[in-house]
Design a protein around this nucleic acid. Structure first.
Lengths: 222, 222
DNA sequence: ATTATCTATAGATCTATAGATAATGC
DNA sequence: ATTATCTATAGATCTATAGATAATGC
């Protein structure tokens, strides 16, 4: 009656594994750690649980990482907020000058695609479990996006795409990015159902449409 | 050299305390628990730490709460999301019919005041630490606010305060409440500096102003 | 010799309970 | 007798280390 818990890989044999069996253990550990940290938090996840998930003994973990904290940091660095403002292709940047509303829609939809991937969603779950929500890392990521949008709006205000009476670009960026950031944090996490995620993405795109329709000049001439 | 950690009350004497010394221990425990849970998370907070904070032995805690989980739930119930849609006074509801933009500004500023109080901020910290962020409790609270705003917008669309071409009330509510919710979650938490909180409140109020200025009909006649 | 694993275990916590003690209120 | 506390401790679990073992690659 000695049934192993589901999904638990068999214990490995003692000694160094045969060449054929050797994978990238360090990466395996990191992946498992992120999953567990995201689900149970840092203190809620034991090194034992991580080891079991990978089919290792606890001590083998310490051959790869000097401490639980070091493992957490490696996990965060691996899955952490990438500075993904690299959607700035040549085509996109042309669009920014000829059709700002379409540019924004494209940009946000690119972000959504990125945030909807499992790695990005694990990060959100991680961050909302371990008090990292209010850490500098996340704040920087969010403020970074707002700063980028602010600079875009500044250009568009100068070029007359946006009427000056709407006020400074920062205010516009706050109202524009707010619903997007909230949707990400609330609905694009590891445990969100596909339906919830689909709904969130649709809501965000409609927000972009509404925002651009009420702010941008309809009759702009270059 | 036996210096006690700062803020640690002296151990109480054995036996039932004198009448003069007896306070509301249960409430004291709950308060301390919320503070610690908010700062270190559920598993990151030991019953020992809570007991020490109140100046009790660990076992005295178990006379008041049957388990750590029960204590956590009591804390959450005590400080949990109150259904504070009771800003619906008679005066406010009159404003809703005569001056929607002013009504919205007043409503949001009331919410901000409530959310800026320490109890409300402790709740945010709690929720962003223990995976409660994506719990039904918080989702319901957020969706609840959106639903309320949606019903307001519906009325105002029907009365002609808002032009029909902006689309359904839900979309308006999403764009309106998004930045407000994000600001609360990101900036109105237990560890936020007064400056950060002031900035957040100001940002939110400016968002409300921007939103109403670009959506509401300037020339509405009753 | 080095690398990647194992088994065994030290030492620190952690939750929760048993049983003693001292005040209260009838 | 009841209430509110204490001291002491059981039993589980957690992080981390020491030392053994078996494969690899020179």
């Amino acid at each position: 009656m000695d049934t192993l818990p589901q999904g638990t890989p068999a214990r490995r044999r003692p000694g160094r594994p045969r060449k054929a069996d050797s994978g990238d253990t360090k990466a395996e550990i990191t992946r498992a750690a992120v999953r567990l940290f995201a689900r149970h938090g840092f203190t809620g996840t034991s090194t034992r649980a991580i080891a079991r998930e990978v089919g290792l003994s606890e001590s083998a973990l310490y051959a790869h990482f000097t401490s639980k904290q070091a493992l957490f940091e490696a996990a965060l660095a691996r899955f952490g907020p990438q500075g993904s403002t690299d959607s700035h292709t040549a085509i996109a940047s042309m669009l920014a000058e000829t059709d700002p509303p379409r540019f924004l829609a494209k940009m946000v939809s690119d972000f959504l695609e990125h945030w909807d991937r499992e790695e990005a969603r694990l990060l959100i779950s991680l961050v909302t479990r371990d008090g990292l929500m209010h850490s500098d890392a996340l704040r920087t990521a969010l403020v970074g996006m707002r700063a980028y949008v602010t600079s875009l709006f500044d250009d568009w205000l100068a070029a007359g795409w946006l009427p000056a009476h709407l006020g400074p670009a920062e205010r516009l960026a706050f109202s524009f990015t707010g619903p997007i950031g909230l949707a990400r944090v609330m609905h694009l996490h590891a445990d969100a159902t596909p339906e919830e995620r689909t709904q969130a993405r649709a809501d965000v795109l409609q927000h972009v449409e509404l925002f651009t329709s009420v702010t941008f000049n309809a009759d702009h001439k270059e």
